[in-house]
């Protein structure tokens, strides 16, 4: 279990993580989701003590990470695949990590086998592909057979087979009763892997709920209507709490009013409808809706560009 209380990280005048509170429960996969710069990595780094919080605190299994006698048994962490000396072989890297805690060499070979690195274990890490580096990082995270796993973008650079493997592994580890926290900006990945989501935007928690709730809560009332008289229909539907967006070729996307009502109103006015579809929201929609105002590096936008240029 991971518990954060008013966890804050400031870099100069910039607040990367802004007084976030959350609890990551054991037995399920929790996804930390957010756009670039939302504070996902910083949050993860603070959990394992690599960054010192500016304010607030975070505990792992009831204690600050550094107070555990065997940190690697508590938390296995993959922060980025490049946290390895490039001049050392994968096996020597794992042996050195294992030695700190007196983890036997047998366990090193076990995680090498588990992550499919056996054929390259004695090669220098500098020559590894991104995917192999990612596997090595996961191997290192599993070394101590930890109760908590923290993985920052674990599927980054993996091939489809590797992605599936990580997904199964995460689900399996959670099923064993472990706490699994992974970050991603890939919504589809999160929808498939995570049970629970913590969404960050500009350093704040903007949603903390089961995946199903987040998907269900967003865009459930969007209806797509296609009509040759789209313009008339749009005028007809115009009400204060109804949003009508014109799409391509006589298509309207309507929110704030149900498909039934649209159909009835159109019939009343004698408007022909070619399509009337309730759009099932995806996690992507939910994510876009929730993070609309939270994206730090939006494309375009002269203010942001000017700021970036400074």
């Amino acid at each position: 279990m991971i518990q954060a209380q008013s966890l804050t990280k400031r870099y100069g005048s910039k607040t990367a993580v802004d007084a976030v509170d959350f609890t990551v429960q054991p037995g399920k996969v929790t996804g930390l989701l957010g756009p670039n710069g939302a504070g996902k990595s910083t949050t993860m780094r603070m959990i394992v003590g690599l960054d010192q919080p500016s304010a607030g605190s975070v505990t792992v299994n009831g204690k600050p990470y550094r107070e555990h006698a065997a940190p690697l048994r508590e938390v296995g962490v993959l922060l980025d695949a490049k946290a390895v000396h490039t001049g050392r072989s994968a096996r020597n890297h794992l042996l050195a990590m294992a030695a700190t805690h007196g983890i036997p060499a047998g366990r090193v070979d076990e995680v090498i086998e588990l992550t499919g690195l056996a054929s390259v274990a004695r090669k220098r890490v500098g020559g590894f592909s991104l995917g192999m580096g990612q596997r090595l990082g996961i191997a290192a995270a599993l070394l101590g057979d930890p109760a908590v796993l923290i993985l920052d973008e674990p599927v980054n650079g993996l091939d489809p087979e590797g992605v599936q493997w990580v997904r199964r592994l995460m689900r399996h580890l959670a099923a064993e009763g472990r706490t699994v926290l992974l970050s991603s900006h890939l919504m589809s990945e999160m929808a498939l892997t995570a049970d629970h989501l913590i969404m960050l935007g500009r350093g704040r928690v903007i949603a903390d709920a089961p995946v199903a709730d987040i998907i269900g809560g967003a865009g459930s009332n969007t209806v797509r209507v296609r009509s040759p008289q789209a313009t008339r229909l749009a005028t007809l539907l115009a009400q204060p709490d109804v949003t009508v967006t014109a799409g391509e070729q006589d298509t309207l996307e309507v929110t704030g009013i149900s498909a039934v009502e649209i159909g009835e109103q159109a019939a009343g006015a004698g408007i022909v409808l070619h399509e009337l579809t309730g759009i099932g929201a995806s996690l992507e929609d939910a994510y876009m809706a929730l993070t609309q105002n939270e994206v730090e590096y939006r494309t375009g936008g002269s203010a942001e560009l000017q700021e970036a240029a400074r």
């Binding site: 003590g49 938390v75 490049k82 001049g87 990590m97």
Partner: peptide, 9 residues
């Protein structure tokens, strides 16, 4: 190389 993060974790 970033190894320091593994070491300090």
């Amino acid at each position: 190389t970033g190894m320091i993060r593994s070491t300090l974790a």
